[in-house]
Design a protein around this nucleic acid. Sequence first.
RNA 1: GCCCCCAUGGUCUAGCGGUUAGGACGCCUGCCUUUCACGCAGGAGAUCGCCGGUUCGAACCCGGCUGGGGGUACCA
Length: 450
Amino acid sequence: MRVRFAPSPTGALHIGGARTALYNWLLAHSRARSDGGERGTFVLRIEDTDRERSTAENVEQILDALRWLGLDWDEGPIFQSAAAERHREVLEQLLASGHAYHSNAAKADVDAYKLSHGAERGFRGVAEACGAVRLRVPDDGETAFDDVIRGEIRHPHASMDDPVIARADGSVLYNFAVAIDDLDAGITHVVRGEDHISNTPKQLLVFEALGVSPPRYAHLPLLHGLDGKKLSKRHGAASVQELRDAGYLPEAVVNYVALLGAGFAADEEFFTLGELAERFRLERVSKNPAIFDERKLRHLNGQHLRALGLEELTARLEAYTGHSGLEGAVAISSEKIQTLADFWPLAGFVFDGPAEDSAAFAKVIDRDGGRDRLRAARGALAAVDPFTAGEVEAALRGLVERLGCKPGAIYQPIRVAVAGTTVSPGIFETVALLGRDRTLALIDRALARE
RNA sequence: GCCCCCAUGGUCUAGCGGUUAGGACGCCUGCCUUUCACGCAGGAGAUCGCCGGUUCGAACCCGGCUGGGGGUACCA
């Protein structure tokens, strides 16, 4: 089995593209494949024939995104542009055999043709001495293929236009180049987005004209945004790069994106790349387009974050924030964050000092005896020894008991005093991490505040 | 317009002729340190897009319709 991922480097790697890459990777690494053979080969091909829009930066960005996701390829990257000569050769071959012909017909000619022959009739041109090259589509019959995911898909020839496969300058177009490249790379399974369904018969016709047998095809449903429209920039983080910047883990992105349409049983959903590959079955992939829901990604990200372990999570957070010495704060925060980006807003006060949140101060300390309770808490904390989370907890619980107030009436003022905000890691752990001197100083500072 | 694909709670899905239509995210309630999150225990939320047909029986099979999506480039 040989599969491929063939992005065109006209922009960053989008989530939809990432999923296509992932499914190809999973298929190549799947153990439950129908052919029962050893691991498949994952080929990476860069479709850079659109010279205007393809850039080296985009290529690098795509490779970088794939590496970040852990989707390593076995062959490539192969650049489609490097095969220009071979493309031209095959084109000549088709021209010579009569499977293709030169034509100068333009959009207006195609429209006129449909006006006189019927809107559902595919355009048929007349061979000319020069011009673009069109592939001859038979008038009768149909081109059908058995899509691994969707079953039989048929396109009647009568409604297919003779597709243009090369420009007048001889450079070949997508549907032709793809067929030749897949053929030359020995691709056995083409797994790509649903937007390519109607391209498939054109490519199939190229194979047929060449007298070779085509690969199998599987068309993945597309990914949509929360509004049901095709996923794009306006849906927030739409590229892998943006997801990384937003604090998501590659493990979680891979896990979530795989789940969208993989057709797994719903009893379990936390998976590593390897586990995904073990479970993956191409035939099981869903036919419905899925909506990318960042909330579920967040949830899954939290799961993966916690599964990392303190040491690894600390390393990731240090890399993400650019700070070091984070371990203590990470230890008390890991249960409370869902993305790497959540960490600093939650625990940054440990390093930067309390945030200036006057609303929190007014609401929690500067009213209803908040100061008095904070003063009492200070007294209780001053006597704690050793200054551990356990001892801090015992002291504060004792205070709550003595004062007969609700726990929060004591804890929230302390929280606001040391963190500056009403949200922080657990209060006992936080206070213990800060240490007695710092804690008391911060409380004094809050008590002195007007 | 024409061609093609799709259709289970807000979202992702399980289901494969007989189920109180299951799970997860999200939402709500309770408990857990009146935060946030994790965890646990509950809860609300689906005439399985609509109409016909096949069948003793349909979310599951067939047809039509509607809705959504994709394609319709000398882009990829």
